[in-house]
């Protein structure tokens, strides 16, 4: 019996361009985004992100439907305003943060892929940059897309902002609010996810932290605590800042806007410092 063999010749030497660290950061960010929403993964990995997105979008769709079907409701101003809409996305934002951050960080550490990343042109700073670059647009699916859908829906039913100027201002406020919420929740949830290699533990940790933060806030309000102590609650302070972006008095009119902004900034910078500290100590090889 004779045997035949097809020799493909193997890979050729590569003499094309080698793109730099910035390109590597973008590829890691894109890969992380795809993984977090379950792309190229099984159906199970897609269910929860999709469900959360539906939870965030559903009120916008319902409100748009109401605006189309019941224009009188719009006329009497009974529909929630744009800044009010952020109350609808709070649960979805909490859930999505708990899903996304552990997927972004824990999986790489647990699987050992982090070692392969650090053996590539990435370093700790660029790696974390890639993960933040992934987290911000992911959380914007919750913090920006629903209000944009609402704006589109209301505008198409004739209940949108009057004129190009108002629309521009509203869009700026939407992007500003999304940036504030995405940055705050990304920083907090990534910092918590950096504390463990286990996704489930990290997810529970994110939820518990944010719920505890909310409970603390509620307790402080009931105890007539000084308004400035509201800054201790990440959810309260970031949502208060969003209200100020929309030029609303917010839940705590006595709290100066700069204090709300400072409190929110602290909730971004503090967790990011913890995140950096954790990754500065990660052992890759020894």
């Amino acid at each position: 019996m004779t045997t035949a063999r097809i020799d493909a010749g193997g890979p050729q030497r590569y003499d094309g361009p080698r793109l730099g660290q910035a390109y590597a950061v973008r590829r890691v960010a894109l890969h992380s985004i795809a993984r977090a929403v379950g792309l190229r993964r099984g159906f199970g990995a897609k269910v929860l992100p999709l469900f959360t997105l539906v939870v965030a979008l559903l009120p916008a769709v319902v409100l748009t439907g109401l605006a189309i079907l019941l224009p009188d409701v719009i006329a009497t101003g009974d529909l929630p305003s744009y800044p009010d809409y952020y109350g609808f996305i709070l649960t979805a934002l909490l859930l999505f943060s708990a899903l996304v951050a552990p997927e972004l960080l824990c999986t790489d550490r647990r699987s050992g892929l982090l070692g392969l990343y650090f053996a590539a042109p990435l370093d700790r700073r660029s790696y974390l940059g890639a993960k933040l670059l992934a987290a911000l647009p992911l959380l914007s699916l919750i913090t920006l897309v629903p209000v944009l859908v609402l704006l589109l829906g209301l505008a198409s039913s004739g209940a949108g902002p009057a004129g190009l100027g108002d629309t521009g201002v509203l869009l700026l406020r939407m992007f500003g609010a999304a940036a504030v919420l995405s940055a705050t929740f990304a920083a907090v949830s990534l910092a918590i996810a950096s504390l463990t290699d286990r996704r489930a533990v990290a997810a529970v940790g994110v939820v518990l932290f944010l719920l505890a933060s909310g409970a603390l806030s509620a307790a402080l309000v009931q105890a007539d605590a000084p308004v400035s102590l509201q800054l201790l609650d990440v959810t309260t302070v970031s949502f208060e800042t969003v209200q100020r972006i929309y030029a609303q008095p917010g839940q705590f009119p006595g709290l100066p806007t700069w204090q709300a902004a400072l409190g929110t900034a602290a909730w971004v910078v503090g967790p990011l410092a913890l995140l950096w500290n954790r990754y500065a100590r990660v052992e890759v090889t020894r």
């Binding site: 590569y14 094309g16 361009p17 080698r18 793109l19 590597a24 890691v28 990343y117 590539a120 042109p121």
Partner: peptide, 9 residues
């Protein structure tokens, strides 16, 4: 993906 991270288009 790891090829891309090493700079390959």
């Amino acid at each position: 993906h790891l090829g891309e991270v090493h700079g390959l288009p």
